[in-house]
Amino acid sequence: MIQTISVAKRFGPDTYALRDLSLEIPTGCIYGLVGSNGAGKSTLLRLLSGVYRPTQGRVLLDEKPLYDDPALKARVCFLADELYLPSSSNLFSLAKTYAAAYPTFSMEKLKSIVSLLQLDGKASFSRFSKGMRRQAAVALAIASQTDYLLLDETFDGLDPVMRSLVKRLLYAEVERGASAVIASHSLRELEDTCDQLALLHKGGIVFESDIQNLKTSLFKVQLAFSHPFGQEVFAGMQLLEYQQQGSVATAVVRGDRDEARARLRALSPLVLDLLPLTLEEVFVHELSALGYQFDEALLGGEETPAASKEEQKDAPGGETKP
């Protein structure tokens, strides 16, 4: 298990990319890190991979400090958002670097993945498109067969077919017992991939949960009665949002779906529909409940783009000042 305990990372005298961050990444799962640009996702992955030394706090793998420990680092493979694929090199050539570094690296596995992805392993990286470069990097990381895969914006530049292929490969890794940590600024990317999700905002974790729980605990209810009615029909249920137009009401409810259906059906409505929420909708409501604005947290708010550009120069991971 990878653990961070009160980790902070500072760039320069007063620029904090992460502050007092604690989390645990269990084995055998796909862990999603979502957040706007500058939220600290890349910095967190670099800390988890031992690239950065934490300014304070500890990053542990199986309760041992990870930084500059070759034995522990051999169990972690990090794929940065900005890929290191020298133009003069090719996939099989770079594979030798991986093979020298990772004792678990499998050339056979790489060849099978390369074949699956229909990449030319002997072609120079300079001839690869952005998507192909990403695929090549993912192939190398997966072929390393480490216990942990730390992937930053992995699906960036992949077409839907390739995205699906890569996801399948990741699932296979999880079945092998490995864990994958995927950072993305797009919630939709992670929605159908991750088992667990954490939302980073301004260098801290705002929200962390199991996706299945998230999705099933919140649901949308559409309801209509032949007589006038109000919110009171949801009495005894945790109502997160309620809207009514004429005789039709729409509400977002937290709780047990079957129980809610039974209680509402007992009121003999004309219409009763219980609909699942998208992950994005779940996040909107969960964050609202925590006092955050969804746009601010996930998209960085209105001022984010300008601030992000400025701060990226100071903070290498594209982090932001808290």
């Binding site: 670099r46 031992g50 690239v51 500059d68 070759p70 680092k73 972690v76 290191y84």
Partner: peptide, 16 residues
């Protein structure tokens, strides 16, 4: 001298 290269090599399982 390149972020990508620096991150790549420092992520490899070797002590500095």
């Amino acid at each position: 001298f390149r972020r990508s290269g620096s991150d790549f090599f420092h992520a490899l399982p070797y002590s500095r």
